[in-house]
Amino acid sequence: MNDYDVATAAFARAVLGDRESLVDVALVVGASAASHGISLVEAIETMADLSPGREPPYVAVRSVVEAWTGSAPSPAADADCHDPLTALTSVPHLRTRLDDVYRQAGHRGWEPAVSHVLVVVELGRRGAHALEDDLWGLEVGHALAVAFPAHETVARLAPDRFTAFTHADDADAVGLAVLARLLREGLAGEPEPRVWVERLPVDADAVTWLLSRLTE
């Protein structure tokens, strides 16, 4: 049993009983997860699995995030184009995906403006600090990935704005209803986020303008 397993076992005991040690245990969970190459998302999911109702206390989640970010090695040139904290893709990576789709469409005779969309989620308010925004980002990213699981690219456009680049057929009434339910569950107690479907431009050159507007 490694130190991460020991820490998560201690968290399971603390969350059900000794709440006074919860923050200290959560700090060890975050630091040991980072040292073993375990993603922050996976560490928080483990905490949720060990918590009553899958709702780990906010102070524990915050401590795990602080310890993980303080212990995780710096990513090498952002090789996978993912934010190591939220696991969301970067805007440059999203732009690359868009460029790929437009290039393929040009060769194969279909129109990205018809086949694909961006489903955008904008939070109802900004957090008091960046860490709070990142925690909400985890919830929104998870909701988008679950609601649109087929070939989606989920990216963070701004501190309070997120998107899933997905097939237009998936962004129907059913997909949007699933997204709305997941957002209500994940952001319980927060103002309702704004959700809309952004159509892609016919001209590939207009993608730059679109992303500039969405990332303002």
Rank of each mutant, 00 (worst) to 15 (best):
H129G: 09
D133T: 09
L118P: 02
G124K: 08
L135A: 11
V146W: 02
W136G: 13
A150K: 10
E132Q: 14
F148I: 04
A143S: 05
V140W: 00
H129M: 11
V146D: 05
E152P: 03
V120T: 04
H129E: 15
G141R: 05
R125T: 07
G127H: 02
G137I: 04
G137E: 03
A147H: 00
L131D: 07
E122C: 06
D133Q: 08
D133L: 11
L138E: 06
G127Y: 03
L131M: 15
L144S: 04
E152K: 01
R125I: 03
V121T: 09
V121P: 07
H151Q: 08
A143K: 03
V121Q: 02
F148P: 00
L135F: 08
A130N: 12
A143P: 01
R125K: 09
H142E: 14
E139F: 07
V146M: 07
E152I: 06
A128P: 01
W136C: 12
G127T: 07
L138Y: 06
A143T: 05
G124Y: 00
A128I: 08
R126F: 03
H129A: 13
R125V: 04
H151V: 08
V119D: 06
V120P: 09
V120R: 08
L131E: 12
V119R: 07
V146S: 04
A150V: 15
G141H: 07
G137Q: 03
A147G: 00
D134V: 06
H129K: 13
L131F: 11
W136H: 15
L135P: 02
H142A: 14
V120K: 04
H151N: 09
V121M: 03
L118T: 01
G124W: 07
L138K: 10
L118E: 00
L118I: 02
A150L: 15
A130H: 12
A145K: 11
G141E: 08
R126T: 14
E122I: 09
A145Q: 10
A128V: 15
